[in-house]
Simulated assay, not measured.
Amino acid sequence: MMKRLLHAFALLPLILGTAACATQTANPETAAATEPSAPAIAQLPEDADPALWVLKDEDTTIYMFGTVHILKPGMTWFDEAVKDAFDKSDELVIEMIEPDATKMVQIINDIAIDKSGTSLRDKLAPEDRANYEAALARLNLPPASFDPLDPWFASVSISLIPLMSNGYDVNSGVEKDLKAQAEMRNMKIIGLETPEQQLGFFDNLPEEVQIGFLNFTISTLDDVPAGMENMVAQWANANVDALAELMNAGLEDKILYDTLLADRNATWAEWVEQRMEQPGTLFMAVGAGHLAGESSLQQKLKAKGLKVKRLKY
Rank of each mutant, 00 (worst) to 15 (best):
A19H: 04
N27P: 02
E29D: 14
K56W: 08
L6M: 09
S89L: 01
A112Q: 00
R4P: 07
W77P: 08
A51P: 04
P50M: 01
R4M: 12
A26I: 14
D47Y: 09
R121K: 13
A125R: 03
G74I: 13
T18L: 09
I107R: 05
P50G: 00
L11C: 07
P126A: 00
T76Y: 10
T60K: 08
L92G: 02
L120T: 05
P39H: 05
A40Y: 13
L120I: 09
V54M: 10
A38P: 02
T30V: 13
I97V: 15
L16A: 12
N27T: 14
P39T: 06
K123N: 06
K83M: 05
M75V: 12
K115Y: 06
D128G: 04
E80S: 07
S89P: 08
D100M: 10
A48D: 00
D122L: 03
L5W: 09
T60C: 12
T23F: 04
P99D: 06
P13C: 00
W77Y: 11
P126H: 00
D110H: 06
D110F: 00
G74R: 13
L71S: 03
K3M: 02
I108P: 14
A48L: 05
H69Q: 05
S119W: 01
N109D: 14
F78E: 03
K123P: 04
A42Q: 04
G66Q: 05
M75E: 08
F9D: 03
A42W: 08
D57P: 12
T61S: 09
L6C: 04
V105E: 07
G117V: 15
A22K: 08
F78S: 01
W77K: 07
A101N: 15
L124C: 11
A48S: 04
D47H: 09
G17E: 04
D59Q: 14
S37V: 14
D90K: 12
S37H: 14
I70Y: 15
M75G: 07
P36Q: 07
P36V: 12
G17W: 00
T30G: 07
E46C: 12
A31M: 11
M96P: 02
K3E: 09
T67G: 03
V54K: 06
D79R: 15
I62G: 03
E95C: 08
T18Y: 06
L11H: 12
E98D: 10
T25W: 01
E35H: 11
E29P: 06
A101V: 12
M96Y: 15
T76C: 03
T23V: 10
A101W: 02
D87P: 04
E80N: 13
K72V: 10
A10N: 10
Q43C: 10
A33C: 10
G74F: 14
P45S: 05
I97E: 06
A19Y: 01
K56N: 14
W53N: 02
L6Q: 10
N27S: 09
L5Y: 08
A33K: 11
D128E: 11
P99T: 06
S119P: 11
M75R: 11
R4A: 01
K123R: 14
A26L: 14
A10L: 12
C21D: 09
P36I: 11
S89H: 02
A48V: 04
D57F: 06
